[in-house]
Amino acid sequence: MGCYHSKRTKKTPGYEEPTVLAAETPFTVSEVEALYELFKKLSSSVIDDGLIHKEELQLALFRNKNKRNLFADRIFDLFDVKRNGVIEFGEFVRSLGVFHPYAPVEDKIHCTANLLSDYMIYGKLVSLNEKRRLKEMVMALLHESDLLLSDDFVETIVDKTFRDADLKGDGKIDPDEWKEFVSKNPSLIKNMTLPHLKDITLAFPSFVSKTEVED
């Protein structure tokens, strides 16, 4: 019992109650508790301070804390809602919520736009019309994958993508156009659903919930 008590009282900075987070996300209380187990593991992998630092996220994603990756930066920014350079537990759970299989598709579409746009301007797609930046992202991706395509070919891909998405032809992709584009290309949101989240309580059983059931 003493062990149980000490486990419950030792919470990390930024900890939020599972009941609060479950009410705001697709997760159940038990799933939030299981996510806390995962969070503790991730947040202590390099710096044991109960917060996920960028290198800890990189370590989890790539098994290499020093691997620089354009997209890992974007994922980190997605989680670091407060923009203070670390991911707190509440941010972790709320941001993961959109990846839940039961999260609304609209949220996934919106989140994809933010991941693909350049400045993380939530709710807007203003930066998606910057072809140059998109081309750079494609080139970076190809480089990471050791794929060699000519500059002209990549530009052709980007131009065509914009023509297909910019239905009004006004030089920008607005949220409605983005929604339409995703409906025609559903693989765009494939990575926005993590089946693992349905089994999170099995993968990371929570000591707290098991003890509370016994109580």
Binding site: A60, L61, I75, L116, V138, L141, I157, K160
Partner: peptide, 26 residues
């Protein structure tokens, strides 16, 4: 020249860097 069927956004969104599955690997 063959018609371009690749989609730049699709290419990016399916990249490994945007796949969070590895977070759940023990």
């Amino acid at each position: 020249m063959a018609p371009v069927t690749m989609n730049a956004f699709e290419l990016i969104s399916t990249s490994q860097g945007l796949n969070l599955s590895s977070l759940f690997e023990k």
